[in-house]
Amino acid sequence: MPVLRWILSPISLIYLLIVWIRNKLYDKAILKSKSFDIPTIVIGNLAIGGTGKTPMTEYLIRLLTSHYTLATLSRGYGRKTSGFRYVEKTSTALEVGDEPLQFKNKFAKLTVTVCEDRCAGVEILRNSHQVILLDDAYQHRRLKPGFAILLFDFNSLFSTIITLPTGNFRDNFSASSRANLIVITKCPLRLSLSQQQQIEHRIRKHSKAPIFYSTIKYDQLKDSNHMPVAFDLSVYHILLLTGIANPQPLKEYLLSKVASIKQLTFADHHNYSETDYIKINSAFQNLEGNKIIITTEKDIHRLHEEILTTLPIYYIPIQLDFIADKEMFDEKVLNYLFHVQSVNEH
């Protein structure tokens, strides 16, 4: 961990205290949370970025969209607008954020919305939808969700859990007690019993929620028009362009499949500038032989049309894939919705 982060450790203690007091005020109803009769499912995490909230949201969309009139509601991180907005396929990442735009491009008939005030957003959507998925709203305690799915990155549970700014956690680990389901993401495919026991020992100090294990599944390479392409990647030198929290799994996936990789890394949700495009073009031109640029699905929505049409840029979509007990996970989500529906009908 960088020295600067340890220097900031006193601030982490202050941050930890503030978060603890805030949670206690909500737990004791001194600060009020608002609940809704419409089913609301929150997908969130305790750490910053990189836990797979977007693949989980997409998994739930695929699970539910044929049975319910569904809407997603996100903050729209990185957008330059404010207030409630419907996301259209013609929207830009600067208007609505990269993740909501990704949802709309993949699920054209889905209602995709952004609003920093989640309660206000649900109020607008509640009368015309049967279920609302709230992406990254676990800490938005003004809204009391009907069902909460909490994600942990596998590697984060094998290191010391420290809050910001020294560590990467934005909430106390005890906040996991509010979860209805817990999903460990980005697990190795050969997950050992010992690793599961270590994880469950840590979580069970705070939560009795069922624990599920998942990994990343990489889909077929696509072009900037979202059309699948078939390349023999082994003959290509790759410029790997990423503006996400943790690009390492994607790099590791590609290492054995390509001739070579040069990596160009930007911050999570980075809004690309003209200076960045000069840097990208220069890095690409410096590659030898057969060469292409591979980026992420989030980044493809933030790159300007000009660079997408002048350079050979492709992306690899990802999906969440359960290692086991997928049917049990689905059943618990569907049982919640069935229960709410039954209560509302009576």
Score class of each variant (00 low, 15 high):
residue 2 P to A: 13
residue 5 R to I: 14
residue 10 P to Y: 08
residue 10 P to K: 02
residue 11 I to R: 06
residue 12 S to V: 05
residue 14 I to F: 14
residue 17 L to Q: 04
residue 17 L to Y: 08
residue 18 I to T: 07
residue 20 W to Q: 09
residue 25 L to W: 04
residue 30 I to V: 13
residue 31 L to A: 03
residue 38 I to V: 07
residue 39 P to W: 06
residue 39 P to A: 09
residue 42 V to M: 02
residue 43 I to H: 03
residue 43 I to L: 00
residue 45 N to A: 13
residue 46 L to N: 11
residue 47 A to G: 02
residue 52 G to R: 02
residue 55 P to C: 00
residue 64 L to H: 02
residue 66 S to K: 09
residue 76 G to V: 01
residue 77 Y to K: 01
residue 80 K to S: 13
residue 80 K to C: 11
residue 82 S to K: 09
residue 82 S to P: 01
residue 84 F to Q: 02
residue 85 R to L: 10
residue 85 R to D: 07
residue 87 V to T: 06
residue 88 E to Y: 12
residue 93 A to Y: 03
residue 94 L to R: 01
residue 96 V to F: 00
residue 97 G to F: 06
residue 97 G to Y: 05
residue 101 L to W: 12
residue 103 F to Q: 00
residue 104 K to R: 06
residue 105 N to H: 15
residue 115 C to P: 07
residue 123 E to R: 06
residue 123 E to K: 09
residue 125 L to E: 11
residue 126 R to V: 14
residue 127 N to C: 14
residue 132 I to P: 00
residue 137 A to D: 09
residue 139 Q to H: 11
residue 139 Q to P: 00
residue 140 H to W: 15
residue 145 P to D: 02
residue 145 P to M: 00
residue 146 G to H: 10
residue 150 L to Q: 04
residue 150 L to G: 02
residue 155 N to A: 07
residue 156 S to M: 04
residue 156 S to G: 02
residue 159 S to M: 08
residue 160 T to D: 10
residue 163 T to M: 12
residue 163 T to S: 11
residue 164 L to D: 01
residue 165 P to Y: 01
residue 165 P to F: 01
residue 170 R to A: 08
residue 171 D to E: 15
residue 172 N to G: 04
residue 180 N to S: 05
residue 183 V to T: 00
residue 186 K to R: 08
residue 187 C to Q: 00
residue 192 S to I: 03
residue 193 L to W: 07
residue 194 S to F: 01
residue 198 Q to P: 03
residue 200 E to V: 05
residue 202 R to V: 06
residue 202 R to K: 14
residue 202 R to F: 05
residue 207 S to H: 03
residue 207 S to A: 07
residue 208 K to V: 03
residue 208 K to A: 04
residue 209 A to N: 01
residue 209 A to S: 10
residue 214 S to Y: 06
residue 216 I to W: 04
residue 217 K to V: 08
residue 218 Y to P: 03
residue 226 H to G: 01
residue 227 M to F: 11
residue 227 M to R: 11
residue 230 A to I: 15
residue 230 A to W: 00
residue 231 F to Y: 12
residue 232 D to K: 10
residue 235 V to Q: 13
residue 235 V to D: 09
residue 236 Y to W: 11
residue 237 H to S: 14
residue 240 L to R: 11
residue 241 L to F: 04
residue 242 T to V: 13
residue 253 Y to P: 15
residue 258 V to L: 15
residue 261 I to Q: 09
residue 262 K to T: 14
residue 263 Q to V: 02
residue 264 L to P: 13
residue 265 T to I: 15
residue 266 F to T: 08
residue 266 F to G: 04
residue 268 D to H: 12
residue 268 D to M: 11
residue 272 Y to V: 07
residue 275 T to G: 14
residue 275 T to N: 10
residue 275 T to A: 13
residue 281 N to H: 05
residue 281 N to C: 12
residue 282 S to N: 13
residue 282 S to E: 11
residue 286 N to C: 15
residue 287 L to N: 13
residue 287 L to F: 12
residue 289 G to N: 08
residue 299 D to A: 07
residue 300 I to G: 02
residue 301 H to N: 10
residue 303 L to M: 01
residue 307 I to A: 14
residue 309 T to C: 13
residue 313 I to D: 01
residue 321 D to Y: 13
residue 325 D to V: 04
residue 325 D to A: 13
residue 327 E to F: 05
residue 328 M to F: 12
residue 330 D to F: 02
residue 331 E to D: 12
residue 334 L to H: 09
residue 335 N to S: 08
residue 337 L to A: 05
residue 340 V to R: 07
residue 341 Q to N: 15
residue 343 V to G: 00
residue 343 V to A: 09
residue 344 N to V: 01
